[in-house]
């Protein structure tokens, strides 16, 4: 679109200002976490607070990594999150494909039920779910926690993938059927490879959700063997005492994996693999 130079400049200024404001809004807390993790205990409580650490220290990180169970909690979180991601993606894809592609009675009803399952608030579910896990003997186990998270991630992933599969031309399925592929072969050899960006996005969602989840983690697991880092962090708040330095250092450590995953997965999210399959 053609613009007058003056309009263009004003527009750019407004966009830049908006971006800076949004960045400040979202990054300021992160900055504060990082800076606090690098301060000594006395500096953390200093008044007025310091914007930059006067005495840079990695002591908080050393304690968090080597003198506490935090690393084990992070490992537990990773195992739970990975389990949730893999199972959600597999069940999600297997459930979404028929809803997106096949014609059968109750197709739309199943799609709606899937959304409803996703919309149920966790705060409503966590007591009945606790009873279920108790009957299954899965309280205080990572498997139990994975099962609990799946109640939320599977409906979401299925719902997202129904939409994503809908964007893939149905002629590809038909071509595969004429080529002799079964439904499962069509899904695994044709649809899933094309849907990689979609699968990546739902996988990321499932991983992030399981990684950050706090309520179920706090209620369903309590031993060191199963506890995830979110519940572990709350252990650093004892009564009215906050071990701020360690709390912040642990938080930074917990942010790093998810940050790396997001950066690595970025290209899949943006990439439109379906380009070139049909007219275009």
């Amino acid at each position: 679109m053609v613009e007058r130079p003056r309009t263009k400049m004003v527009r750019r200024c407004i966009v830049a200002f908006g971006l800076v404001l949004a960045l400040f809004w979202s990054l300021a807390p992160v900055y504060w976490v990082v800076v606090t993790s690098l301060k000594t205990s006395s500096e953390i409580y200093a008044l007025p607070p310091t914007l930059f650490p006067h005495h840079l220290t990695f002591e908080n990180y050393r304690v968090a990594l080597f003198e506490s169970d935090f690393l084990r909690f992070v490992l537990n979180s990773a195992l739970v999150a990975l389990g949730v991601t893999v199972v959600s993606a597999i069940i999600g894809a297997l459930a979404a494909y028929p809803v997106a592609r096949m014609r059968f009675k109750g197709r739309m009803t199943s799609a709606r039920l899937i959304v409803m399952a996703y919309l149920l608030p966790p705060s409503l579910l966590f007591i009945p779910l606790f009873l279920v896990l108790q009957h299954l003997g899965l309280v205080d186990t990572k498997t139990g926690l994975i099962l609990a998270y799946l109640t939320f991630t599977v409906p979401f992933c299925t719902w997202m993938l129904i939409g994503y599969f809908g964007t893939i031309p149905a002629e590809l399925d038909e071509a595969a059927r004429i080529d002799g592929a079964s439904r499962l072969q069509t899904l695994s050899k044709v649809i899933l490879p094309i849907a990689t960006p979609g699968i990546t996005v739902v996988g990321l969602f499932a991983f992030t959700h399981a990684w950050n989840e706090f309520l179920y983690a706090l209620v369903y697991v309590y031993s060191k063997d199963s506890k995830t880092f979110t519940a572990g962090l709350s252990g650093l708040v004892m009564g009215d005492t906050f071990i701020w330095g360690q709390l912040m250092a642990s938080s930074v450590i917990a942010i790093v994996p998810i940050l790396i995953i997001y950066i690595a997965a970025q290209k899949y999210i943006v990439e439109g693999l379906a380009a070139g399959s049909v007219k275009g």
Binding site: P169, E171, L172, V190, P193, I194, G276, V278
Partner: peptide
Amino acid sequence: IAMVFQSYALYPH
């Protein structure tokens, strides 16, 4: 049978 589609329907990957 074999079929040729209007939209080609080639597997893009």
